[in-house]
Design a protein around this nucleic acid. Structure first.
Lengths: 231, 231
DNA sequence: ATTTGAATTTCGCGC
DNA sequence: GCGCGAAGTTCAAAT
């Protein structure tokens, strides 16, 4: 990710035609090549932008533009359409680049959070004699949904998903790697719990010695609140 | 505008409940207090954010969080709702602040651009004997829609809007101030041209010695392309 | 001020 | 991959 603060103007042609008069703005270039022009106000929406996939060509200004004080021109061209964003830079006030790596992305705590609540309350669904240690057990790489102990006192880490797919197994694997480094917890067994577990995810989990547990949401709600079964 | 690159995690509660696992991200704090969390991919939409008006309280982490490596916590609270965004920072890789000032904002060149085209082609609508110097006459504060000369050779700057309101007059005033400093052009007269001119805008323009010109879009198109009148 | 409708919409899910 | 619908929608115009 590259961050540039500069006095600049811009022209956009594509779905519509528009321009930005000269002003000082943040120019954000993401790793995928996308470009965002942000002002110091408004909402999360940039003043102008180019979505990926796109490429940026940097060139010297034409003599006419140089006379107006332009020091550099960014021509951002979309690769699949003729959308085009041309940025004239008058003065660069800041320029830095940063390695961010891939992002795990936003996790919406909807049904998933409710499933976690219900499983914590009905922890013996993991097997007779299990006891809850805590929900949202925090680690350096994020919260483990549920940490429990089995009848023999051994640690069990549970990852809960609404739909159990490959990436959920990968996530649990990372947690297990980390938790098993802690001598107070190791050895830690893994349980992949979901309303629905895709065959590929089940194969991967089994291969890694992770147990799969299919959760019956309605039945769990019924146990938790018998009144709901009356309707 | 403050730019922070940091390894962080976040929790959002409001319209929905969600969280961001730890990862390196851009934290953008705008002058209005709004906060944006951007990853190095995706579209222009942040992973998470808080819209203005909101306030950010920075505090030391709880002991439990400090053990996980958290060095700072940002609690961002919306002022009119109970929307809340809490960000845990593990490691700050970059931190800089920048003065950007107000932004003139995006100008959409729709009917406005067509009106400019038509008026340039029918420049005598400004008065008999007028001649076009050029469209989009570039200045340090942005492009003047039309620069022309009247029958006596005096400069005329034209600002074109679809709907003529106060801010259009202000804009033309700024251009006139600038253009009149150029001895090769001064004195420059101003013309505020629009399909519809609001009474308040007309009063302000008149007060500043700026002429108002109401443009008849259909009539101008008719003159420009007589064929279009057949349908 | 409130409401209505488009958006360079983006985003996710189903097919 | 394409289409459909929701969004912490945002945004501007009209009532």
């Amino acid at each position: 990710m590259r961050l540039v603060v500069a006095r600049c103007s811009a022209r956009y042609t594509g779905r519509l035609t528009a321009h930005l008069p000269p002003a000082t703005r943040l120019l954000l270039v993401k790793a995928d090549g996308s470009v965002l022009l942000h002002s110091d106000g408004g909402s999360y929406k940039p003043l102008n932008w180019m979505s990926p996939p796109c490429t940026t060509a940097v060139r010297e200004p034409e003599p006419e533009a140089a006379e107006r004080g332009v020091v550099e021109v960014w021509a951002v061209q979309h690769q699949k359409s003729d959308d085009r964003l041309e940025i004239e830079l008058y003065e660069v006030l800041h320029d830095s680049a940063h390695e961010l790596g891939v992002d795990p992305g936003l996790v919406k705590d909807g049904v998933e959070a409710h499933l976690q609540e219900l499983l914590a309350a009905q922890i013996d669904l993991l097997g007779a004699g299990h006891s809850l240690v805590r929900r949202e057990y925090m680690t350096a790489i994020g919260p483990v949904d549920i940490l429990a102990r089995d009848a023999d006192g051994a640690s069990v880490a549970v990852e809960i998903k609404r739909r159990g797919e490959i990436d959920g197994v990968e996530q649990l694997t990372r947690y297990l790697d980390l938790l098993n480094r802690d001598p107070l917890l190791a050895p830690v067994r893994g349980v992949f719990a979901a309303q629905e577990i895709k065959p590929q995810a089940r194969v991967l989990a089994t291969d890694r010695g992770i147990d799969c547990l299919v959760l019956d949401y309605d039945a769990m709600r019924g146990v938790d609140d018998p009144g709901s079964r009356l309707f």
